[in-house]
Amino acid sequence: MRSKNQSPVNTKIIILGLFFLLLLSVIAWSSSSSFIAENDDLSDSAAAAACPSLPSTPTTCTKTPPSLANALVHYVTTSVTPQQTLKEISVSSRVLEKKSPCNFLIFGLGHDSLMWDSLNHGGRTVFLEEDKRWIEQIREKLPTLESYHVTYETRVNQADELIESGMGR
């Protein structure tokens, strides 16, 4: 008695599986194409939001804003750990998402300063810093940031007293 060769059955299963994968990829591709076509008006408004100073046609906004490009290169090439947590950064980021471009005042110049300046693209971001040497170090690396030296006449341990005073108590 001759044993049956299982090879033709396995080949049929493989071919059937490949056919279904091809069919699924065609369906997925056609669905994504129709989704993009149906939402072309959304891409126009997204382009206008990304380039508020330009006309709202998507073809006029094809480049990444220089501030964003500089920030991306800076953060991709640095190994510095952020000074704030994601939760802390998210608070200010959500405000900038709604309000930018705007006038944005930041107390302290940090490793995250370029990010804040970039998130306020088209607005004015000003940093106030107490340490002159730190300002010089940052200006060497990031000369486009607008920063000013300040001398505070109060200290953190006076915070409660100053808050009470400001509230008129």
Results as ranks from 00 to 15, higher is better:
T78L: 09
D112I: 01
G122Q: 04
I13G: 04
Y148W: 10
R2L: 05
T81N: 11
S165M: 10
N70D: 15
L24G: 08
V91Y: 00
Q6Y: 13
L72H: 04
H111G: 14
L119F: 13
S92E: 04
P82G: 05
C51Q: 01
I36Y: 05
G122D: 08
L72E: 04
L23A: 13
I27K: 09
S118C: 14
E164C: 13
Q84M: 00
S7T: 00
L54M: 15
G166A: 06
S25A: 13
T77Y: 07
I163P: 00
G122A: 02
Y75N: 03
S93N: 09
G166I: 04
Q6N: 13
N103M: 11
S92G: 08
A37W: 07
V73Q: 09
T60I: 14
C51E: 03
L42G: 01
L96F: 09
N39C: 04
N10R: 08
N120L: 10
S92P: 02
V73P: 01
Q84N: 05
A48L: 13
L145D: 08
E146G: 01
L114I: 02
N103F: 09
D112Q: 12
L114K: 01
Q158R: 08
R139A: 11
S90G: 00
C102P: 10
T60P: 01
V9K: 02
T78G: 04
A37Q: 08
T154E: 12
D160M: 09
E129K: 00
V95M: 13
M1Y: 13
L22Q: 09
G110N: 12
G110I: 05
K132Q: 15
S31I: 12
V126M: 09
W29N: 10
N70G: 05
L42K: 03
S79K: 14
G17V: 07
S31W: 15
K98W: 07
K87V: 06
S3F: 15
A69M: 08
P82L: 01
K4F: 09
R155P: 03
S53T: 07
K87A: 06
H121F: 13
T81L: 01
L72D: 02
T78Y: 07
V9P: 02
A49W: 13
G108M: 06
S118V: 05
P143E: 08
D131K: 10
D117C: 04
D40L: 00
F107D: 14
H111R: 07
T81K: 11
S67H: 12
R94D: 14
L105G: 07
A28G: 12
D41V: 08
Q6E: 11
S32F: 10
I138L: 06
E136I: 08
E153R: 10
D44T: 12
K4V: 07
P143D: 11
P101S: 10
N120Q: 08
L18W: 01
L42S: 07
G122W: 03
E136Q: 15
S34H: 15
L21V: 14
A159N: 02
L54Q: 14
M115V: 12
P101Y: 07
S33Y: 06
V73S: 14
F127Q: 07
